[in-house]
Design a binder for these strands. Structure first.
Length: 287
DNA sequence: TTCCAGGTTCCAA
DNA sequence: TTGGAACATGGA
């Protein structure tokens, strides 16, 4: 599949921490899309794909998002410009909302390597085994499966206190099959409000789900890394008192979260989520 | 051993 | 509404 002048960097996109279940081995990326095993690699402007159509790959990796237009809109200052230039081709994947919900509930207060381990264990224990070219994959477990497992089995996957949240949210999804379709059709703030009602989902997790799986590109998730970015490069946009307060405490309050996130949305605009991803990855790579 | 992790929940003030 | 502790676990 030819990229035809569409900027795309497969490695960056899969490596930047937005998605957890892809593995790189023997020069190929191995993952599961819509319950099918897929392998893919990039050679310059060509994508070599096994077991997925070009259409599926195009929609999954958001290749129809106009990255030039996005860059033009979010490139508001020298810092974001630096991040855009260094990591040009990083795209926001269109994840499955169900998997995204559970993944980001698990992602709270955990390192990326630990999150990956949790989700691989969860898939191995409760998902379906599938094979492509001798590589063994496990699909992400379905709501009907996860909502029925014992908490002790979930604890065995290393989920810790998140187990009860995953169980409760799975039950909620299981009893409302059209939930994600409904959420995708709602405007950002209404969808966010509904997501926060899920056990284990706060403002940050909700913003990640909205951005990574429900097409809400204006979502601007605030985590420890983005808080650092704001303290280092964007503190001028806030009062000294506010900056002083958030720099002295580890976690932020709800109203502080809203203040920071609202800044991101208004400053960067309709594609704030892209800005967030570039800034997030840049901060992680330089520190 | 200690620290910290793509935070959320619960409870007291 | 707000502030702060508790929360399970594993990787560095």
């Amino acid at each position: 599949m030819q990229l035809n002048n569409k900027p795309f960097d497969l490695d960056l996109t899969l490596y930047c921490g937005q998605i957890f279940k892809w593995e790189k081995k023997d020069g190929w990326w191995w993952g599961v899309i819509e319950d099918k095993p897929v392998k893919i690699r990039q050679v310059n402007t060509q994508l070599e794909i096994k077991n997925a159509s070009s259409n599926l790959i195009t929609s999954y990796f958001g290749l129809n998002d106009n990255l030039y237009e996005i860059k033009r809109k979010i490139c508001k200052d020298e810092h974001i410009k630096k991040a855009l230039n260094r990591f040009w081709g990083l795209r926001i994947i269109h994840q499955d909302p169900w998997e995204c919900l559970i993944s980001y509930i698990c992602a709270t207060y955990k390192s990326i390597s630990a999150i990956r381990n949790m989700l691989f264990k969860l898939s191995k224990k409760f998902g379906e085994k599938i094979i492509l070219d001798d590589h063994i994959f496990f699909t992400f477990p379905k709501p009907e499966k996860l909502q029925s497992v014992k908490e002790s089995d979930m604890l065995a996957c290393g989920l810790g206190y998140r187990s009860k949240y995953v169980l409760a949210s799975s039950k909620k999804v299981f009893h409302n099959e059209s939930i994600f379709e409904d959420l995708a059709n709602l405007p950002y703030s209404q969808a966010k409000k509904k997501l926060i009602a899920f056990p284990g989902v706060g403002p940050k997790v909700a913003d990640c789900i909205l951005l990574f799986s429900l097409g809400k590109n204006e979502a601007f998730p605030i985590d420890v890394w983005i808080k650092r970015v704001i303290l280092h490069y964007y503190s001028d946009h806030f009062s000294k008192q506010f900056i002083s307060k958030i720099s002295t405490t580890r976690s932020i309050t709800n109203s502080e979260y809203n203040h920071l996130s609202e800044f991101g949305r208004t400053y960067f605009g309709e594609y704030a989520g892209y800005a967030q991803e570039y800034l997030y990855h840049f901060e992680r790579m330089i520190s």
